[in-house]
Structures are given as structure tokens and as C-alpha cells.
């Protein structure tokens, strides 16, 4: 795919917009809502934690849709979208895990515990890491794309598991922010959501979704450029 000046312009605009949003969201997380009563200032990590999780959820969902479309159409652009989304999603879910661990230390008294939610998100991260490993291990490009699409579809089951598990297991200590749950509120360390907290949460989720889309776009552009250079190289060598 050719990159016109127009497309580059919009990518640049979106990059500035997402950078602005990220700064604004961070400032908002630190100033707009008050400190939480029982957890204090550390609870502010929650906005980044949830935002980056939604970002990675978005990219992994895009990856599974792109995988299905690739298998149906065999158009390389879907494969590029799939691979780029998985890479960005891995980065964002690493942010989720790290912020969660930092937050857990003062709240639960430990960085890591084998709570069902923590276990499933670790599984999710490892599955997508295996996806990248698969891509690098298969030489034939057509087969690589096909297997990667198949594995991206299987791997999405780990994302679904991560989302479903806190709603069906009674022994999770991870809070369920939205939707039904079987645990009682005091076990989960739930906090009362004031309108200010809610606004900050939504703004952060929005920011991280925009950010993941822009990053994926950049990643696709790099992939397209490297394909373009490869083709150029071959055509120049062919003319010599």
C-alpha cells in the first residue's frame, strides 16, 4: 500500500492528538478525583491499569477479527494488521501487569499472587508472546501468515477467559469494576465510585484506545515501508 502525503498528515495529527490525550489523562488521574479513602494515592494507578487493559483488549480483538478476515480473503493487509495489533497489545498488557503489581504491593501486601485473574492475564500474555515466537519460527511466508491467523484465533480464548473469570469464580480478590460478580464487595476491596472517578476512568479508557489504534497504525506503516524497500531492492537488483 502506498503512503500518500495525505495519509501521513493524518497519522501525524493523530499522533499529536494521542500524545496530548495521554498527557491530559495522566494529569487528570493525578489531580481531578480525590485520593481514595482506604488505599490513598496509590489508587490513582488504577486509571492507567484499567486504561491499558482496555487498550490491549481492543488490539487483541482487532487481531482476532483480522485473523478471521485473513483466512477468508488471504489479503496481506489483514495479516499486517493482526501482527501489529498483537505487538501493541503485548506492550499494553505488560503495562497492565506492571501497574497492577505496583498497586498490589501496598494494597494486598505482595507484588504477585496466584489469584485467578492474575493467573489468566499471565496466561494471556504468554499466549501472545508465543504468537510472536510462532511468526518468527516459520520460514515460508504464506504458511506463516496462515498459521499466525489460526493461532491468533485460538489465543483470543485466553482474553475471553481473563474477562470471564472474575465474574464466575467466587474466590478472586481482584475487584470487578463493571458487571456482575459472585464475590462480596468487602472481599474484593471495591471502592465507591464518585462521578469524578468515573469521568477519569472513562477518559483514560478512551485515551488508551486511541493510543493503541495510533500505535498500531504506526506499526503497520513500518511494516508497509519495509515491504516497499524490499520490493525496491529487488527491482533495482533485477535491473542491474
Amino acid at each position: 500500500m502506498e503512503y500518500t502525503e495525505n495519509r501521513n498528515f493524518w497519522l501525524r495529527v493523530m499522533t499529536y492528538v494521542s500524545a496530548f490525550l495521554l498527557v491530559a489523562a495522566t494529569i487528570m488521574s493525578f489531580t481531578y478525583p480525590g485520593a481514595e479513602r482506604s488505599m490513598g494515592e496509590v489508587q490513582r494507578l488504577f486509571y492507567i491499569h484499567l486504561g491499558s487493559f482496555f487498550g490491549s483488549f481492543l488490539t487483541f480483538s482487532v487481531a482476532v477479527v483480522a485473523g478471521i478476515y485473513y483466512l477468508r480473503t488471504r489479503d496481506n493487509k489483514w495479516d499486517r494488521l493482526e501482527a501489529s495489533s498483537v505487538e501493541i497489545g503485548l506492550g499494553l498488557s505488560a503495562v497492565t501487569i506492571v501497574t497492577g503489581a505496583i498497586w498490589a504491593r501496598p494494597t494486598w501486601g505482595t507484588y504477585w499472587t496466584w489469584d485467578p485473574r492474575l493467573t489468566t492475564i499471565a496466561i494471556m500474555w504468554l499466549t501472545y508472546a508465543a504468537y510472536l515466537f510462532l511468526r518468527s519460527a516459520i520460514e515460508d511466508p504464506e504458511r506463516k501468515r496462515r498459521f499466525a491467523a489460526v493461532y491468533a484465533i485460538i489465543a483470543f480464548s485466553s482474553v475471553i477467559l481473563t474477562i470471564v473469570i472474575i465474574r464466575v469464580r467466587p474466590d478472586v480478590i481482584h475487584p470487578t469494576v463493571a458487571g456482575p460478580s459472585t464475590t462480596s464487595a468487602d472481599v474484593r476491596g471495591e471502592f465507591n465510585v464518585t462521578p469524578r472517578i468515573r469521568d477519569t476512568v472513562f477518559f483514560n479508557i478512551f485515551t488508551y484506545c486511541v493510543l493503541s489504534a495510533v500505535l498500531t497504525w504506526h506499526r503497520i506503516r513500518i511494516e508497509n515501508k519495509s515491504d516497499f524497500i524490499q520490493e525496491r531492492k529487488l527491482s533495482i537488483l533485477g535491473n542491474m
Binding site: I123, L134, F147, S157
Partner: peptide, 23 residues
Amino acid sequence: SMSVYARARETLLPIMLLPVILP
């Protein structure tokens, strides 16, 4: 059936399979 096509099939199988079967 996917990992047999890979270069390092002995290492790829456990890496791909273990996270999938962890549940």
C-alpha cells in the same frame, strides 16, 4: 500440526501449546 512445519519444531511445540492448555 502447525509446529511440525517450523524450523525449531521441538522448542516451538511446548512454547505454543503450554499457554493454550494452561486452563
